[in-house]
Design a binder for these strands. Structure first.
Length: 412
DNA sequence: AACATAGGCAACCGCGTGCGA
DNA sequence: ATCGCACGCGGTTGCCTATGT
């Protein structure tokens, strides 16, 4: 692969853009579109390289850019997504329409990271320093397992992007095949969105691949971490269950209508972690998980669980690909996952962070009803129980967030 | 008022990847 | 299969402004 000669640097201007340059670029793009960035500068009469023009446009001049202070909701979204995706700013930006990846990155580095650090939270792992005191086993496993979730989400985002590209290429031919129940898909990976879709196509299917995926998470992560915890209340001897609501439950009426933009709006499947007493995995009717369930010493199984979980996960993706072949078109009657905004609003761990920022003059009541319903934990000291509960909400909201589709993501 | 330091942000740099020739 | 181009992305730099001494 030849490395691209970025641009002919001789005679090209660098540094801050002048209003005149902005005007030229803006005027040209408004009239002609950006087209080929490389050719744009000469056509627009700019002494800049195409790359510089593209950056200026995407990060500053684009009309759909929202500038100014980040809202509380946006901050929460960034924190939650960063916990799951890491420094994948473009992926994070797809969930924050009107914000650029550069802006998000800067905001993270200059504001949010510091706040996390201030609270004793590692901004990289999002792990509280007290983890070792609280539950050196469970919490660390949770973090480790979440990294697997992040890997999956990374794959999902990439698969989504690929799928969109392919769907665009095939859009015309697919139009002609809408009546057909099957079409060949060359997509090597599928997405959570399509997991839903494929399942909806065949509601009778009891071996949905997506359940394997989520069960993998469940058994590999949440189930295990909660089982080793000795929390109180909801976390008392719980079996954490990742339930998947095929149809929108009544509670969905309380959720705001974010997300779901790209695929459809008829149904609103929702993912949520449910901490409940008693077993739940077997309720899913998946025999292969019973072995884990019957284990009385999970630590002996921990490696096996993780290994099997990821194996199942991999199979799940593979099966997804197969299932996709029976799915309808991307642009057709797709169902979508939706952001459970209510869950986000309820999450507490991030509120701790935001609350603890005494220098921040914004109150938690600000930001479109982002209420702090966990005022008893707002001290930020993070007692063990509070931390567990906060963490549950925290990751709960993360998962809901990432399984949603950005409403008007530039990615799509 | 002058200087030093820190914070914030726009822009640049270099790498990875997709795609067409 | 290979090569070169174009673009996207994440990390980093450097300038400007605010704040402190």
């Amino acid at each position: 692969m030849g490395r691209s000669p970025c641009c002919d640097k001789v005679g090209l201007k660098k540094g801050p853009w002048t209003p005149e340059e902005d005007q030229k670029l803006l005027a040209y793009i408004e009239e002609h579109g950006h087209g080929c960035w490389r050719a744009l500068p000469s056509k627009a009469g700019l002494q800049r390289c195409g790359k510089s023009c593209r950056l200026r446009w995407t990060n500053y001049l684009r009309p759909d850019i929202k500038r100014g202070k980040f809202s509380l909701q946006e901050e929460q979204t960034i924190i939650q997504l960063h916990a799951l995706l890491g420094n994948r700013w473009s992926a994070i930006a797809t969930h924050l329409p009107k914000r650029t990846d550069n802006e998000i990155k800067n905001y993270w580095n200059t504001h949010l990271k510091k706040r996390l650090t201030k609270l004793g939270i590692d901004p990289i792992t999002h792990k509280h320093k007290n983890d070792t005191l609280l539950s050196s086993d469970g919490q660390s496993k949770t973090v480790a397992n979440l990294s697997h979730m992040a890997q999956w989400e990374s794959a999902r985002l990439e698969a989504e992007a690929r799928l969109v590209r392919e769907s665009k290429l095939r859009s015309h031919s697919l139009q002609n095949q809408l009546g057909s129940s099957t079409f060949a898909s060359s997509s090597s990976a599928s997405t959570s969105v399509l997991i839903i879709n494929s399942h909806k196509q065949d509601p009778s299917s009891s071996a949905s691949p997506r359940l394997d995926v989520f069960k993998a998470w469940n058994n590999g992560g949440w189930l295990k971490s909660n089982e080793v915890s000795n929390g109180v209340g909801d976390l008392e001897s719980p079996t954490s269950t990742l339930s998947f609501c095929e149809t929108a439950p009544p509670i969905m009426a309380t959720t705001s209508g974010g997300g779901g933009g790209i695929l459809g709006e008829n149904t609103m499947p929702m993912i949520e972690f449910v901490a409940c007493s008693g077993s739940s995995v077997k309720e899913e009717g998946d025999q292969e998980w019973k072995g884990y369930e019957s284990s009385t010493n999970l630590t002996e199984y921990k490696d096996g669980i993780m290994e099997n979980s990821m194996t199942t996960f991999t199979c799940g993706l593979h099966e997804l690909t197969m299932s996709m072949e029976g799915a309808t078109t991307w642009s057709g009657s797709h169902e979508s996952l939706r952001t459970n905004d209510h869950a986000i609003a309820e999450q507490g761990f991030t509120n701790l962070l935001l609350n603890a920022n005494s220098g921040d003059d914004r109150s938690l009541s600000e930001g479109g009803g982002d209420s702090n319903n966990r005022d008893d934990s707002s001290s930020g000291n993070g007692s063990g129980d509070d931390f567990c509960e906060d963490n549950k909400n925290y990751w709960n909201s993360i998962l809901n967030l990432v399984t949603s589709s950005p409403s008007d993501s530039p990615m799509f």
